Amino acid sequence: MIKLVECPRDAMQGRAEFIDTAIKAAFINQLLQVGFDTIDFGSFVSPKAIPQMRDTAEVLEQLDLFGTKSKLLAIVANVRGAEDACHFEEIDFLGFPLSLSETFQQRNTNKSISEALEAIENIQNLSEIKGKTLVTYLSMGFGNPYNDPYSPELVADFVRNLDDMGIKIISFADTVGTAQPELISELFTVNSQSYPKIEFGMHLHTHPDNLEPKIMAALKAGCFRFDSAMLGFGGCPMAKDDLVGNVATESLIRILEQEGYELDLNRMEFGEAMKLANVVFH
């Protein structure tokens, strides 16, 4: 079964002009009616690092979770953020960005990779105690622009470490939009066969023209968890100066349905969410 993870947090976080809390909440409330598996709605990180997400707790208070089947995911960058997120029963998933690039790990979370792995172990323990599920994003999962070491074997080493910690969901993240279909296919095929108990997902940043071959490569290799953002907004403000946007949700849905997948989405509510997205992001 396909799991769609809608990422308004990713779409919002890089925007310079602060989006009003009530507007954020209204948009996410509309997304909650569509039928996505998960909504990546906010983050508990330093407001100095990501000012746009400084109101995540206030947004959460305004969400109407009655009747939705969607689960909530919040990004954290350290144990303190995880502890803050764990105060809220409404949050199902914590997401942690672990980079294969030492340079990007420092830029993104002000940690070394070894420090990030230690944080993940602590957050995983906390998640198990608090009834949350930790999703680890392997950022720069298909290479990096910093000339840091990269290889599929390095990816396998990271996955093995995470498996040893008991991580159940790993999402390969193409942070700067450079993933090629052949590498996507290789990473999913090799790792899903080696670690059948782990759910592997795809968090792509990509130019729209290159989207379909990448989605198809992941699908054919057995990926059934896809992150996206309406209208393709987003990108990581910590990666480099020019942001590469997310997979556009509407494009992802079109590709999946062309391949015969039934997504069980409320089309009327999706249309309303698209209208709101045009207001929020323009």
Rank of each mutant, 00 (worst) to 15 (best):
Q13L: 07
Q13C: 01
T21I: 12
A22Q: 12
A22P: 01
A25H: 04
A26L: 09
N29W: 09
L31E: 14
V34M: 08
T38N: 01
F41G: 06
F41R: 01
S46P: 07
P51K: 07
M53S: 08
A57E: 14
A57L: 00
F66E: 13
T68Y: 01
S70W: 06
L72T: 07
A74M: 08
I75N: 02
N78G: 05
V79M: 11
D84A: 12
D84I: 10
F88K: 01
F88N: 07
F93I: 00
Q106G: 04
N108M: 05
K111F: 02
A119H: 09
I123R: 04
Q124E: 13
E128V: 13
V135H: 12
Y137V: 13
P149C: 11
E153V: 07
L162E: 02
D163Y: 14
D163C: 11
D164C: 03
F172V: 12
F172Y: 03
D174R: 04
Q180W: 05
Q180T: 13
Q180F: 01
P181D: 07
E182T: 05
L183E: 15
E186G: 05
F188P: 04
Q193G: 13
H203W: 07
P208W: 02
D209P: 00
N210D: 14
L211E: 12
E212T: 09
M216C: 11
K220Q: 13
F224E: 14
M230Q: 08
L231M: 13
G232A: 07
G245L: 05
G245D: 01
L252K: 06
I253P: 03
I255N: 10
E257Q: 15
G260N: 04
G260M: 06
E262F: 09
D264W: 02
L265T: 06
E269Y: 08
E269F: 09
L276Y: 11
